[in-house]
């Protein structure tokens, strides 16, 4: 498959709703499954999905924060017996902290890696 072709050639079935149909890449040249107009209509338009509403996203994030706080809170108020092989594992919120920091670090390091190792998509061709 060429890298640009199928996407730019994809037929615009419903421009008003921002829909486009994907080209069929297939398992060996089967006919494409073009959506019927009815099927297409059932799918929310671009920007209208539940997960696309900024307010909903904020709700999700706040819910996430709440759960996070709750999990650390369990540590804080010793709601359960915390058990680990090492002493540091029993610190309050150790895993939370470790998870957060290591993820941020991983991303930041990876961004640096990109400077070294990123090449054009067709570098080897």
């Amino acid at each position: 498959m060429s890298e640009e072709g199928p996407l730019s050639e994809a037929p615009e079935v419903d421009e008003a709703r921002g829909h486009r149909q994907a080209p069929q890449v297939d398992l060996h040249g089967r006919e494409g499954h073009t959506l019927s107009a009815a099927e297409s209509a059932r799918i929310p338009a671009v920007g209208e999905g539940w997960f696309e509403q900024p307010s909903n996203i904020n709700k999700i994030i706040w819910a996430l924060v709440a759960v996070c706080v709750a999990s650390v809170g369990a540590d804080l108020f010793s709601l359960y017996h915390k058990h680990g092989h090492y002493g540091f594992q029993e610190w309050i919120g150790f895993d939370a902290f470790y998870g957060f920091v290591s993820c941020v670090l991983l991303v930041l390091v990876a961004k640096q890696l990109r400077k070294v190792s990123m090449r054009d998509e067709n570098y080897y061709d």
Binding site: C68, A74, Y80, H81, K82, H83, D95, A96, V107
Partner: peptide, 16 residues
């Protein structure tokens, strides 16, 4: 203990 600590780890990854 195990469930909560793992949840902490994972939830804060998502938070990150």
């Amino acid at each position: 203990s195990h469930v909560v600590t793992i949840l902490q780890l994972l939830l804060f990854s998502v938070l990150a």
